[in-house]
Simulated scan of single mutants.
Amino acid sequence: MKPTRFETAIAIIDQKNAEDTTTYQVADIAYPKELLYSQRMTRKLLQFEPNASKALQVAARAQHICRWKIARNEYPMDRVGYLKWREELKKMHAKITGEILEQVGFDNQFVERVQKIILKKLLKKNEEAQALEDTICLVFLDYYFEEFAAKHTDEKVIDILKKTWIKMSKKGHKAALTLPFSDKSLALVKKAIS
């Protein structure tokens, strides 16, 4: 049976993310960092939003596509530089994803919808962009938070948690509080949201 356009698009996104030379270890296996991240995004999205549209599923899978191509150190190492870097990344992710979708035969309307989700336009008003933001936050909290918290002061961790919490919906908050945090991390989360 011939794969669908959706399956082909996901396969191409995975192919591109598999080119990431930075690896991430899980159970002594080294994965291309962005490939692992994108698969975690899909898994978390479908747990959080089981009826997610194909557009939202593509956006989640491609949310960090080829992220390594724009290095953080190409921008000033301050808040303004960080935000500019993030903005350039979003544009690149949307552009690459749009090209893939056009290549496999999706129409302009679908392509634009996916790009809007990736660019997170009208967050809080665009339900799919908000679901993507919630998923990003949940993936961070579930898979990367403990490691992040171990490298930073409690003050910095609480600040990041507060910023993360603000971006999330009530549904996202509820899902976050069901994650398996360590006692120390749960205490930090509670402190941040109180």
Rank of each mutant, 00 (worst) to 15 (best):
K16E: 15
N17G: 05
Y31Q: 04
E88S: 12
I117R: 07
K90H: 14
K167R: 15
D134G: 07
I100Q: 07
R86Q: 14
S185T: 01
Y37S: 01
A9E: 02
E147V: 07
L36G: 01
F148R: 03
M77V: 03
E146K: 06
I65F: 06
L119D: 04
F148M: 06
R86N: 07
L122K: 14
K163A: 13
F110I: 08
F48I: 01
E155K: 15
P76T: 05
G98W: 10
R72H: 06
C66F: 11
T164G: 04
T164Q: 10
N108T: 14
F6E: 02
H173D: 01
N17W: 09
K190S: 01
K170H: 10
Y82V: 05
A187R: 07
K121H: 14
I136A: 11
A52F: 12
S194H: 05
A27G: 09
S38Y: 02
Q47L: 10
K151T: 13
H173Q: 02
H152S: 06
A62Q: 04
P180L: 02
P3E: 04
F6I: 02
E87M: 09
F6D: 00
N73T: 11
M168H: 12
Q47K: 10
G105Y: 05
K84W: 05
K90R: 15
K191V: 01
I65W: 07
I10W: 05
L122G: 14
A52N: 05
D183T: 05
L56R: 04
